[in-house]
Simulated scan of single mutants.
Amino acid sequence: MTMKQATIRSGQGIGTITIEQAHVREPGSGEALIRITAATLNYRDLIVAKGLIPGLGKQPQVVPLSCSAAVVEAVGHGVTRVSPGDRVTPIFAPFWLTGSAPDPRMLGGPIDGVARQYAVFDTESLCKLPDPMSDLEGATLPCAALTAWSALTAFRPTQSGEWVLAHGTGGVAIAALQLAKAIGAKVAITSSSDAKLARAASLGADLCINYKKQPDWASAVRKEIGGSGVANVIDTVGAVQFDDNSSLLMPRGQLSAIGMLGSDFSWNRTDSSVRLAPVGVGSREQHEAMTAFMVQHRVRPVIDVVYDLDRLADAYRHLEGGSFFGKIGVNLL
């Protein structure tokens, strides 16, 4: 049996994406063959495509994307975790099952990802997708949603009534908004688009700041939230905002260093007065806890637009352009 899959030459740009036919292998002992139905993109996929972090993508090429939903087609000998017909999501780091130490073997980077119609995975890396979530919604969970969940719960658990600040309206920021509101926190969000801020407000954002209209956005946030300070900054922009983000933190508040949308990561900044938490997505255990929480609180992930696999390069360009809200999906049916 053959399938359609995408590959990209790591670090060589979006233009090297190709769609090709590939062989589908049978699952071995402890493995499952899954039929992937939906996937989503993350900014990390651009990092691999453009080589923004040297060595992150498998050479010379890799099957891209890390986040998907699928149906189990067949299982190998000794499998009890899943059965044919189960809806599942492969976790972002297939060998990081529990504990706080990240595993560097991640889908769509060091190892082949999910931009393909079939894949074989060790069943320990598969999590069941609950019925209330669609396949596209499930495909948002492994990276963006879990990163937000880890930022809010893994280091300094966010409490009801506290303020969370999220920058932008991409996958991590919108997941953080939705999860923080479900926890009972208050959320401030920044964007350069009034239309996107209006959508964020419809999801429960308590404070929306257009940083183009208010360049001193930190002062605007400080004025609006009063003297309580921010408990957790979801830092998707990077070190360029380190000082402003840090100035807003309440005592023992947390700067969750996640992204590099505007500069280098904040991970390497050293300031003993700042509680800096480098967020490296999360484990299977965290993924399952997050999914149960989302179902309990009826959190429905946001997918802005969906492309067919044949148009994956267009999906990347849409991601690069930044005009999306929440997540960009890929249909693999």
Score class of each variant (00 low, 15 high):
229 G>T: 07
267 W>H: 14
1 M>R: 03
89 T>G: 06
291 T>I: 04
192 S>D: 02
1 M>F: 06
12 Q>W: 03
277 A>S: 15
149 W>D: 07
234 I>P: 08
232 N>L: 08
63 V>E: 04
213 K>E: 06
62 V>N: 03
66 S>Y: 10
228 S>N: 12
153 T>Q: 15
192 S>E: 05
260 M>W: 04
61 Q>L: 10
139 A>C: 02
93 A>E: 02
232 N>K: 11
320 E>V: 10
25 R>Q: 04
43 Y>V: 03
6 A>Q: 01
130 P>D: 00
183 I>N: 00
107 L>N: 12
161 G>T: 04
316 Y>N: 12
237 V>A: 15
84 P>G: 03
179 L>S: 06
55 G>K: 12
63 V>A: 02
291 T>Q: 07
211 Y>F: 13
45 D>W: 01
327 K>Y: 14
333 L>V: 06
193 S>M: 04
148 A>F: 13
153 T>N: 08
199 R>N: 09
222 R>V: 12
262 G>P: 12
259 G>K: 02
330 V>N: 02
246 S>F: 13
306 V>C: 08
87 R>P: 03
88 V>E: 00
1 M>H: 02
244 D>K: 15
73 E>Y: 00
155 F>A: 14
116 R>M: 00
193 S>I: 10
16 T>V: 08
234 I>K: 11
19 I>Q: 08
249 L>Y: 03
270 T>E: 03
166 A>Q: 03
267 W>R: 03
39 A>L: 01
128 K>Q: 02
245 N>P: 15
67 C>L: 06
45 D>N: 05
256 S>F: 03
315 A>H: 11
23 H>F: 03
243 D>Y: 09
98 T>E: 14
194 D>I: 02
39 A>S: 05
45 D>Q: 04
302 V>T: 11
44 R>F: 07
238 G>A: 05
184 G>C: 11
325 F>L: 07
186 K>P: 00
232 N>S: 13
